[in-house]
């Protein structure tokens, strides 16, 4: 533990008490805020689901495998992103860019599989306001939460591409890579809750 006088000195002005740059602090604050948006959506979902004991559970083993594959892509892209940040920190810009490209590929794969899944569900008759499995709110919640998440993934990809390009031309620093990475890991983190709460809790079991 830090001793008390040192702690007081940290807060006495002239420096960052948390020893983080504004950029990183700002991104963390944004992440905290955004986490609450998702938290409120999840709580809304939980509230509605509590009121409907007959909530549909349509996901068969195929769907779960697909969702697990998506989880794999996203987790792996997060790992490559972490490596990219480490490389950028060491000043190895080209390795950092390479790993960022890998991250983007992982994200794209996630989006593609996700889009295929949406298409499959829509072909089966699912829409925002109705579905063939019962309570219409099921697909309402599903499309809203996963849609919000997809929008975050897509914007994350844009951010990564911009930062990677800038890094390549030495217009960005390791700090920028790190902050973009924080956002990407957050997107991954949200999926760690979507996967069990939306998919695994709606598994078709015999």
């Amino acid at each position: 533990m830090t001793s008390e006088p040192a702690l007081a000195a940290d807060w006495s002005g002239g420096k960052s008490p948390y020893a983080v740059s504004h950029l990183k602090l700002g991104m963390w604050l944004f992440i905290v805020g955004d986490a609450f948006t998702f938290a409120a959506l999840f709580v809304g979902y939980g509230y509605l689901r509590l009121g409907h004991p007959e909530w549909p559970r349509p996901f068969d083993t195929g769907s779960i495998l697909q969702a697990s594959l998506m989880t794999f892509f996203l987790l792996s892209s997060s790992a490559t992103m972490a490596v990219a940040v480490a490389k950028a920190r060491k000043g190895d810009a080209s390795a950092a860019v390479q790993h960022m490209v890998l991250t983007v590929i992982g994200g794209l794969l996630f989006l593609i599989v996700h889009a295929l899944e949406w298409r499959h569900l829509i072909q089966q008759g699912a829409s925002l306001f109705s579905n063939p499995w019962g309570v219409p709110l099921f697909t309402g919640c599903f499309f809203t939460i996963t849609g919000m998440h997809m929008a975050h993934v897509a914007s994350g990809l844009v951010v990564l591409l911009v930062i990677a390009t800038k890094l390549k031309h030495q217009h960005a620093t390791a700090d920028h890579v790190e902050v973009a990475g924080l956002y990407w890991h957050f997107v991954d983190l949200v999926w760690m809750f979507i996967f069990p709460l939306i998919y695994l809790l709606s598994m078709r079991t015999r």
Partner: peptide, 12 residues
């Protein structure tokens, strides 16, 4: 961010 990081010296 401004309040935490940009206080001048002595402004605890």
């Amino acid at each position: 961010a401004t309040t935490l990081n940009l206080r001048t010296r002595g402004m605890s």
